[in-house]
Nucleic acid binder design. Structure first.
Lengths: 154, 154
DNA sequence: CTAAAACCTGCAGTTGCTGGAGCTTCAAGC
DNA sequence: GCTTGAAGCTCCAGCAACTGCAGGTTTTAG
């Protein structure tokens, strides 16, 4: 039996966000408007909680609201427009893989720092170089390499 | 031979961000002010590029500018205030690990959708449930469970 | 020595929330 | 069934992290 009468404050608490954030998501059409009591207060169900929780996690992972909107749409597109769903899934999967690789490098570096850290200070910190250098760029700007235009020509 | 005369436009292009973003980072003190030409135009070096690239990647991974500031500070704190550096590294490492786990789940789901997708439409999309449910919350709001205050279960 | 391209400052607009004012509704206790 | 305080409502202003534009200056390729 799905709970259908969760007030906005409890919902906010349970997913760890602000009440206003939920209202904002409703306002921009990211979350569907919930039931209302006779006195016009919002009452949510499990489906709302799931979607909201998803949105929050996705945002924490760096997805834009536009991305989130697309990912939410995936669930509805399956069984209707499969080709388009595939396209969205494929594109987001690429982004997810790149994020995982970047975070993996960063984790390794942080772990290395902590391993050395115990008393005997390390000489250099590679945390910045780690995320800075490799070509794992999420956006698709032409190419993030440097050699090509410097010092040899524009 | 470190390039020391990269104009802002080239720098922006090479890391895939806007010119204004770089100026904004300088303005808020996230990036150090670069050299200027006689005509007051900014000229950057490799160190700037590295830092900027790091910032952009970290932002794409969902870190706030405050987090980024801390991570940048790590590089400077090593060799001076090792204990504090350790603390920052440890905290960020925790966040990184959680992000990796969440992204791992999401990747699995997207891959599953695409694997099934080829022509034979799948019945349900678990992408939302995947990121929605598990307790891998980045923030440390009390506890994301629901059972406690609501009569029970979805 | 031009003229287009790139840069400068300053400021307004956008996205994604967050907080406050002023008022209404809900629900727990009497 | 009435009170009363917590929680909700709408509207609007503000903040973080950019993004774009106007109006003018500098650089650089030809």
């Amino acid at each position: 039996m799905a709970q259908l009468s969760i007030p906005i404050g409890k919902l906010a608490h349970s997913v760890g966000c602000k009440v206003q954030t939920i209202r904002y998501y409703e306002q921009i059409g990211l979350l569907p408007p919930p039931m209302r009591t006779a006195g016009a207060q919002r009452r949510y169900g499990e489906v709302h909680r799931q979607k909201l929780s998803f949105v929050r996690h996705a945002r924490e992972l760096g997805f834009s609201l536009a991305d989130v909107r697309e990912l939410l749409a995936l669930a509805d597109k399956v069984n209707s427009d499969c080709g388009q769903a595939d396209e969205i899934a494929r594109r987001q999967l690429e982004a997810v893989r790149r994020r995982i690789m970047m975070l993996g490098s960063l984790r390794t570096e942080l772990e290395r720092m902590l391993a050395h850290g115990r008393g005997k200070r390390i000489r250099e910190c590679r945390v910045i170089a780690t995320l800075a250098d490799h070509g794992l760029c999420i956006g698709d700007h032409p190419h993030g390499s440097h050699e090509e235009d410097y010092p040899l020509l524009p």
